[in-house]
Amino acid sequence: MKNLFSILSVSGLLLALVSVFSFVQPQQGYKPGDAAEDFNLKNIDGNMLSMSNKKYANAKGFIIVFTCNHCPFSKKYEDRIIDLAKKYEPLGFPLIAINPNDPVREPEDSFENMVKLAKEKKYPFPYLWDESQGTAKAYGAQKTPHVYVLKKEGDTRIVAYIGAIDDNSLKAKDAKVKYVENAVDEILAGKAVSNPLTKAVGCTVKWKQ
């Protein structure tokens, strides 16, 4: 009887655990320290672009920004993304923006609109369309904007930082901690990234349904 009781209570506990965890999203994508896969995606100039492109032969790493046209947070950060690209490309960290959203669910994020926005805002960086959403899934991008700083080690690209651009979505001048700049500066100084993971509110990636 005692055994039966313990079996019942253990199975009850398991059931409770299962019901709790069924509400939790599975954790996917990269963590700091993982090797990041390359991508080959269509840029706004119509050409395919990957990180192994010859023009990146001397890059020390990459700033990959999952972002999009429609999201108010992406809009708030747009000028800061442009500034990051201008500051760090000459230092060996080119910035690549990737739009992961399904344009059926969010027409403002269509390829045509990407081309238009990039022209209007004179993007100094490539803006790629992750049509299959495979890159966003592999990286674990869940929202826009969502940044991955990659550090080149030989032929591999190691994830050094994942998260937000800085700690103030509303105003750049009120930001106290600039997470991405700090991470890249630390890599350039040969140091370990002291804050490799941050979180921020953003628009969820619009996955295909």
Binding site: Q25, Q142, G163, K199, A200, V201, G202, C203
Partner: peptide, 15 residues
């Protein structure tokens, strides 16, 4: 956001 997102739930990425 980074100061409080985890206090809502550690699994929350902020979307």
């Amino acid at each position: 956001y980074n100061a409080w997102i985890d206090r809502v739930d550690p699994h929350w990425e902020g979307g």
